[in-house]
Amino acid sequence: MPEMVFRTKHVSKIYDTGEVKVFALDGVDLELFAGELAVLLGPSGSGKSTLLNILGGLDHATSGRVWFRDLELTDLSDRGLTRYRRDHVGFVFQFYNLVPSLTARENVQLVTDVAATPMAPAEALDLVGLGHRLDHFPAEMSGGEQQRVAIARAIAKRPEVLLCDEPTGALDSKTGVQVLEALRHINEAFGTTTAVITHNAAIRKMAHRVVMFQDGKISDVLINETRLMPSEIVW
């Protein structure tokens, strides 16, 4: 039985606009295991991003409890959550969120400056196949390259978990595959627990497990007996 990395218990998130209450998450119980590559699949508004934000320490649940290993995130203060993100979590976003005024290397360095045992920025960029684009600014790179810089930035601190929110959402199929390959490579080489949010059903075929979301709840969990390589995925 692999070690459990994340565990949630009856997690709910309610957005109260004053007039209506929106249940972004409604009593979610989920476990993620060490070294696992999980795909969180579901339509827009099904709650997957909200859950990812809560797992990553970017947001608090309205009710329920969340653990990262033995650390309970539920009641951590802002300072505690900052510490947690700094030490354990790597993020990849749909719109890359690179700092436009910093080069690829410097964007990665943003993380290595504050991490405890980071790898060299060049090494991280090498891992995503961008060893030759170190000193380029975001504006000088393609979308796929920018997303790979974002992945390099996420993994440079050697995080235990990598949380990816629609990493291929803004990319075409060909560049998207390059990004998925980088994610799979990191997952296998470092055993980094990886959660990938997508509403692109094709991507589920590369996961160990697929968690299906519907209306703020987990509707199904599938286990892939045979996984496809990213290069075999087409959309």
């Binding site: 900052t82 700094r86 030490d87 979590v89 976003f93 993380v111 504050v114």
Partner: peptide, 14 residues
């Protein structure tokens, strides 16, 4: 805004 969000996600403090 999004860069600030990113910096916080990475672990920079307030």
């Amino acid at each position: 805004r999004s860069e600030i969000g990113l910096l916080k996600a990475i672990g920079y403090s307030d």
